[in-house]
Nucleic acid binder design. Structure first.
Lengths: 241, 241
DNA sequence: CCATCTTTTGTACATATGTACAAATGATCA
DNA sequence: TGATCATTTGTACATATGTACAAAAGATGG
């Protein structure tokens, strides 16, 4: 019978080994990938015994699965909250920016109560997607496609003259840029010769939002390039689709 | 090229095992990452003996190194060729697009004479950067930073009113989008419900160029979207932090 | 033909890996 | 307290890994 409140449910104060293992695994996976990190590495970093990992999560895959289970819910919940708020913005351009921001911000900040948990988990997802992890592929398709579709549709509503497929492409580029920024932030610092800090999440968010909003507003491909393109090409009224 | 059936040794005119090993390793690394692929996997895929890999490349790292050495030269050479041609385009907007295209196209098509060699090598670089491979990190910084700076400067010349650091950010986003498209093309197909094919390199290039040109032209952050300058942008907020 | 160099093969070895499992330890409550 | 459960520890095992190395096979030039 489940009559122990201090076991798994409440009890915010408890030096739980299970949590330490999860945190250590998340950190190591997000830096070195799944296959490159051994169960022993994780146990060592968590100050635990290798057998303890098997006890709590059965397999290494189970550990990865639990990391996803822990983060996906809160992150997507936060995204939907922000998306609902963004939908209520009246000005079309402001709304588009709010939608993009609603997608980007939780990837950097949301997640559990751990500091930097959101960015770490997103970096983990980036690394896993590059690694082609099979365990993760299912979770991604199951958990994130709903969110993606919701954002694509919302953006499409504020940019009706752009075909949905092109919004899919540009949203895809957004995710790639997001991932890459979290995976290799030092590249920004290096190429800007110290002028910009790739690890500054606040700046990264603003740059990413600004660039993405502009890319979303680009004229679609099937629309022939306007003759006087040096000027305004954001709002095109003669849409054929 | 090779019309012999799926046998490993019979009928060998000049099999050039070294090339077969390189090709197999490149393919496997670009899909599964470096650590996840064993020397025996590579040897099996190449129809070679594991010891042959050691003979030709000494270590597994040496094999990866040779893959990079083989592709970096031609790819960056092609990029510089296209960049020089792009610089001569008179119209500023056309020039910007030509520059972006000069960066993107070789990533998909250039490389050796092998079909799809360029895209495969770029996908390999994407996977390696996500894996944080130490062997690769040096080559990247040494070989690609020159190219990146050249393109950043060229773009900056055609967009002088945008701070260089912001161009660095947007170029960084471009590379992330490029990588992610090569790593996970099926995501585009899935989210567009079959309307777009993420594996269609031609379409991917056009979408990427169009989106990137627009993102590059976005007003800089310190300049909160003036309505009088270029492109019609409805005023955005400056309240968010 | 032989001699010499290059390449391939087979095998071996030390170590790393995921995971199973029993014993030891710790916590909880009648 | 002692009994029962949860957790941790230590160890073991089968397999996978990178790489070294010697023998075999093949090519090359005289």
């Amino acid at each position: 019978m489940a009559q122990k409140p201090a076991s798994k449910q409440a009890a915010s104060r408890k030096p739980n080994m299970r949590e330490a293992i999860l945190a250590a695994a998340e950190e190591l996976f997000s830096i070195n990938g799944f296959t490159a990190v051994s169960v022993r590495d994780i146990a060592l970093a968590a100050g635990a015994n290798p057998g303890s990992v098997t006890y709590h999560f059965k397999t290494k895959d189970g550990l990865l699965l639990e990391i996803y289970r822990r983060h996906c819910g809160p992150m997507n919940h936060r995204r939907f909250e922000l998306l609902e708020a963004a939908r209520r913005v009246r000005d079309l351009q402001d709304r588009l920016e709010a939608i993009v921001r609603a997608y980007v911000v939780p990837a950097f900040t949301s997640g559990s109560d751990l500091a930097g948990g959101g960015a770490r988990f997103t970096r983990l997802r980036a690394v896993m997607s590059a690694e082609g992890n099979e365990v993760v592929r299912k979770i991604i398709a199951q958990t994130f496609d709903d969110t993606s579709h919701a954002f694509i549709d919302a953006i499409h509503e504020s940019l009706p003259h752009i075909p949905r497929d092109e919004i899919v492409w540009r949203g895809h580029f957004l995710l790639g840029a997001l991932y890459y920024t979290l995976v290799t932030p030092e590249r920004v610092s290096r190429l800007s010769r110290g002028g910009a800090d790739g690890s500054d999440a606040g700046n990264a968010i603003e740059q990413l939002v600004r660039a993405t909003v502009a890319s979303m507003q680009a004229p679609p491909l099937d629309q022939p390039e306007p003759a006087n393109k040096r000027g305004r090409h954001v709002h095109a009224d003669h849409s054929r689709a």
